[in-house]
Amino acid sequence: MREVKDLTWKSLEKLKDPVKAFSNRCPLYYERYAGKEDEFGYSLETFAKWEPLFRFLYEEYFQVEIRGIENIPGEGRAILVGNHSGLLPLDGAMISMAMCNLHQNPRRIRYLSTDWFFHLPGLSNWVKETGQVRATKDNAQKLLAVEELVGIYPEGIRGVGKPFAERYRVLDFHPGFVQLAIATQSPLIPVATVGGDEIFPEFVNLHKVARFLQMPFFPVTLGFPWLPAPLMFMPLPVRWMINIHKPINLGYPAEKANDRKLVMKLTREVQYQIQRDLNKLLRERRSTLTGWDEAELDGELPKP
């Protein structure tokens, strides 16, 4: 409602120069990344242009509640690991928004994303410019070497296309992220996200159409192939909860990265931790659209 009050001609002028408006609102973030060359094509202009949309989704539409944002370090390398959700992977964007607007030392998250995005003619540049990086081992190691915050969804693209009946049922994690964490000696930060799996209820996945169009999946949702273009991407106004856990310092020497049994065990432990937290958050939730009881959350929410 705050937004409506502020809506004047003056506020509309922000649209003319989004970068300036962004630098006024998030000076720390702006100073940190302004004028810096980035090997993977990050562009602050594109981010500043799109940030208001995702911030609207974060603050007004999904009304995301975030716990434990202070567990993410302001400096230094770290790997975020989470459960993937929601056809359009908005879960990553929501955490980016929290990191940009709510954190003491705002910083960007570099998500490792699937090759498919980088093959799309229109989308590939946009994906690069908002901070995503093609998921390869080399890229991840380069990012961590320059002390970036790397986000990994080890379920991969399969996790995004979960049918509605399988919501919040984590697929088995790919062990690559633990290998990376041990090899580069970086802490793991598990993140559990509730809400993402319900914004686009997927009723059926048409494999044959997906293969024909060379898409990872072809979902049929409430709106997807039926409604005209912008409406078909309209998510349901579900209340979100993002719970960021304490960082895990694995504490194994870098040679242990090739110990398959150890890596597998650590992977499972992180996976089970996230699944357990999802079960707990779902148990506490009042309903999909209203979310959690304020009384239960008091004191645990960071003040924006």
Binding site: E166, L171, R268, E269, Q271, Y272, Q275, R276, N279
Partner: peptide
């Protein structure tokens, strides 16, 4: 915790 995770993963 690990047993709980194993069971939940198997159920999934």
């Amino acid at each position: 915790q690990f047993a709980e995770g194993e069971i939940q993963a198997e159920l999934n």
